[in-house]
Design a protein around this nucleic acid. Structure first.
Lengths: 210, 210
DNA sequence: GGAAAGCTTGACCGGGCGGTCAACATAACC
DNA sequence: GGTTATGTTGACCGCCCGGTCAAGCTTTCC
């Protein structure tokens, strides 16, 4: 919005903040809030520990800042679901976006999973607020499609739960999937198979496919 | 297998072990391994902390014992999937069993989720061993059904990932589901809707339903 | 150029953690 | 009943954690 010349100081500050947040995302995601130590995050960021406290104050504040930032991205994925969309194309686009998010930002997904597992102490307000409102809005669209006979009848909110679960599992449970598939890491192949499976279940289950 | 008379001492020992494991399951599930403290588990069990160490030695040993016990139950749910079963009945039975497990033992499911999120440091051997073998075995059954034209072609292992994700989400992400649905707790109604949704997606997606 | 404001960092602190132990209590065995 | 094996527990320990701070450094502003 407003960046006049943006002085050298402000520039370095932005970079430091991003540097710390990136390190925190990685450490928090795999260690959880309690398991992560400020020392470990500092080491991952290549900065002294006291520096993190200068910018974020407390561990919890750093964690909260990270969650807020990621939640903004997370909520912006349902754009394709609009009343005038074609149901199959809209859902396919949504599923592909979710899957791509799991692939490109697995740490973010794991971070959410950790937070929700813990009872979402810092996120419950957002879940009951912004997320719930968005689900209600998009559910209304789906109910419209169902009423018009354009897709099979389902409880739309539970459909969202199912889609979230199936797509995020490729990030959150990556370890398990990797070990069962006996591959060193999830690659193109695995994600393509995953997308194909999820699309088949959702589109097929909703009678949006031959 | 072998319980002769089973003396008073051995009886009390069994009870103590169960008592500690039950408390540990609850605390580890919501706090994670690092977040849980032996003091908290002891308090939940109504025993002094030193008593837990007498029976299990270390925190990690207690955690490992718990995981092993729960894994045994977890692996016993695929019994319905056999070559001579009807695909739709077998998968429906499997899904219902998984969903019931999420409902009756949410702590156990959360415990697994926590462990896998952390990279499964204590479970990776079992995942690459027993679980993988079981998935391969059951996948072979599904491939047989597909070859006979009794269900739509899918990568069976990814189908399992999808079913696990959809069913376990009702335990692991219970907080999120509860907040989005705006209910104080997940009850019969919510689980029935969940079962119906998962069944529709899986059976419909695999062309096992009208 | 000099003062003020913002940033960096090693050293330090109290508290809570997992784990230990010695002293005691209770059950089992002859 | 006395001896031994097993269970119980409060008190304690060293360690690592999140957080603080003062001293020094760098940029900004006049």
């Amino acid at each position: 919005m407003d960046q006049p010349p943006l002085g050298r100081r402000a520039q370095q500050r932005q970079q430091r903040l991003a540097q710390i947040l990136a390190a925190a995302e990685q450490v928090f995601a795999t260690a959880g809030f309690e398991g992560a130590s400020m020392a470990a995050i500092a080491a991952a960021a290549g900065l002294p520990k006291a520096n993190l406290h200068y910018y974020f104050g407390t561990k919890e504040a750093l964690y909260a800042a990270l969650l807020e930032e990621l939640l903004r991205l997370w909520l912006s994925a349902t754009d394709a679901i609009r009343p005038d969309s074609a149901p199959d194309a809209a859902l396919e686009s949504y599923i592909r976006a979710k899957m791509e998010w799991s692939r490109s930002r697995p740490h973010a997904s794991k971070l959410f999973a950790n937070e929700v597992l813990r009872g979402a102490p810092l996120l419950s307000a957002h879940l009951a607020g912004g997320l719930r409102a968005q689900v209600e809005e998009k559910s209304a669209v789906l109910r419209g499609w169902i009423a018009e006979g354009r897709m099979a009848p389902v409880e739309p909110r539970h459909l969202f739960f199912a889609i979230w679960a199936m797509t995020q599992t490729y990030a959150d449970f990556e370890t398990q999937i990797r070990l069962v598939l006996d591959v060193p890491a999830l690659g193109e192949r695995e994600f393509e198979d995953g997308v194909a499976t999820v699309l088949r279940l959702v589109l097929g289950g909703l009678a949006l496919r031959a």
